[in-house]
Nucleic acid binder design. Structure first.
Lengths: 331, 331
DNA sequence: CTGAAAGCGCTTACAG
DNA sequence: CTGAAAGCGCTTACAG
């Protein structure tokens, strides 16, 4: 029953060759004689051999695993965004035999990730949703570990990242509102100490100016539903006919506030969100919103990471994707 | 810069002891002399030593990693349920230094998982959402690998699983509807070839009978939003004042159909869902629903799994959790 | 309580 | 193209 697993040694014995040759066949080294290869392959399948990864890792100095690091707040974990990232990463690393290890950073620091890296259990790391103050990106790059960020870092630094063109997304929203006849724009921004918050506001402002519209109303939110509601309340008494909310979740908080004020959406105010997350579909009315190609972005992150694991000397890169507009009933 | 990482050997040299002694200190073996231990600890911290996990795995025959296996359909991945599972598992395995590896089963089979297991990259596996026909549970248990299922298997088999008392959840819903004055119950079931679908229907029927209510209306759904809408349409022309929908997602499909028929919720029909997933909060009106203690259940899965990794001789166990009712505006 | 030594299962120069 | 041999960095009986 629980007999020891088959080793390379055994396969070699059955095939009547050296361990080195079996190893070469297993790893697809091209120089092996065709006939010998077949003998070995037969021995592998009759013995049911599977290579022990720990032994291989020990000599190759490769864990064969990359980490996906999420902030522990739960927010991210329960966000469909997370699932989309996983869907994007999987298809690129799996064919390479690379495992995806999930890590959440503990409040007390990042000991988990750092340990996994120091113990060589992780060849590289994809970092999701780091705050500006997060020391982890620097910690890891300084340790010479391949790292890819899921967004532009707050402060410029030498690091590889993938992002969506946030400003272009905001512009998409404004163009659409203008197209629908809006002349008095307003926005509920994200937190302005986050790159996404900053960039979406900048894109909004630039597009508003480009269309020759009056100075827009701007209130700051924090990407949460409650923050959206609070921001919408601060808009009470103001006059506007188009509202760009920098995240769908905030929009679901803002919508009821508008309704209570007697404003109909989209008749009196047209609303556009950002993210195309599930709340956008479920809220009433369903939300027109800016969508990021998250799966594609995640696949690109994986590709960049794997590349840097293979070739640590590769220079940093940043790849920026174009957002798209998803039109629903709120506009 | 990229100098070789510190090894046990080096620490031993610095501390003036043997590798065996350093190993014992690292692994917390109690029998080491107090003074020696301190010397070694100092050497570890001055050298910045971190044990190489591949080397350890090779001799201990433990990967130090468990797999979380999800069906590849995307459904699960984008479901907040998934995030809740991860939140539950993490706190129990992390302090043990065990990694969580994410795997989705490929449509063509389960080669990924099976390979990871055969290569000893995974010590055990948590299986989420397996269908009745899924060969994976049997495949893995026959290979003598510790496995924990996230639900009762469709066909009885010798396996460890954690579940919620589905029937009790349905009964909770019925009791609540009756409490709110409903006398004519109806239900939209899950797929009846799935344990959850079966058990929720059984619990519903038993509770209806217990309350002495008339024979209820029963239409089968499939746990999807569209399935919920379709089922609700099949209810057209029927008279009922309480509707138990076997998943929140189906309820979000059913709600608009009821509204189009001129039925007000909760005035004309009271509706109770199942899962307490995010759609329950976002739909209109917010849904009264049956909640599973997913985080607790996931933590228990992790505990059972780890236990079986340590002691493979442990007999199978099944743990069933009690559901709770979350009351919102739909009832 | 501590150390010398064997061994875990691979890969990879190095010869030939 | 193939094999003998060294070595990756640990743990763990086994003596003492």
């Amino acid at each position: 029953m629980d007999r020891r697993p088959v080793t390379l040694e055994e396969v070699a014995r059955v095939a009547g060759v050296s361990r080195a040759t079996v190893s070469r066949v297993v790893n697809g080294v091209a120089t092996v004689d065709r006939e010998l290869r077949q003998v070995v392959e037969r021995a592998i399948s009759t013995t049911g051999y599977a290579p022990n990864r720990a032994a291989r890792s020990l000599v190759t100095r490769r864990a064969g695993a990359v980490g996906l690091v999420l902030p522990d707040e739960g927010r991210t974990l329960h966000d469909p965004y997370f699932g989309r990232v996983v869907s994007g990463v999987m298809p690129v690393i799996r064919p390479l035999g690379v495992q995806l290890v999930l890590t959440t950073t503990d409040p007390g620091g990042h000991q988990e990730v750092v340990d996994d890296v120091r113990q060589r259990r992780l060849d590289g790391v994809i970092l999701i949703h780091t705050h500006g103050a997060d020391p982890l990106p620097r910690l890891l790059t300084e340790a010479n570990l391949p790292v890819v960020l899921a967004a532009r870092p707050l402060r410029p630094m030498a690091i590889t990242y993938v992002d969506v063109d946030q400003a272009a997304g905001a512009a998409l929203a404004v163009d659409h509102l203008v197209d629908r006849g809006c002349r008095r724009p307003a926005t509920i921004t994200g937190p302005l100490d986050a790159p996404a918050g900053q960039d979406r506001l900048r894109g909004f402002r630039e597009a508003v100016a480009r269309h020759g519209l009056p100075e827009p109303l701007v209130v700051e939110g924090d990407f949460s539903r409650e923050g959206g509601a609070a921001a919408a309340r601060r808009l009470a008494g103001e006059v506007f006919d188009g509202l760009f909310v920098a995240s769908d979740l905030m929009a679901t908080g803002a919508l009821p506030v508008l309704r209570n004020r007697g404003l109909r959406v989209p008749e009196d105010v047209k609303v556009v969100g950002f993210d195309d997350s599930s709340p956008a579909v479920e809220c009433d009315p369903p939300l027109t919103t800016v969508r990021q190609p998250v799966e594609d972005m995640a696949a690109e992150m994986a590709r960049l990471l794997v590349e840097r694991v293979e070739r640590p000397d590769r220079p940093n890169a940043s790849v920026v994707f174009a957002p798209t507009l998803v039109v629903r009933r709120s506009s």
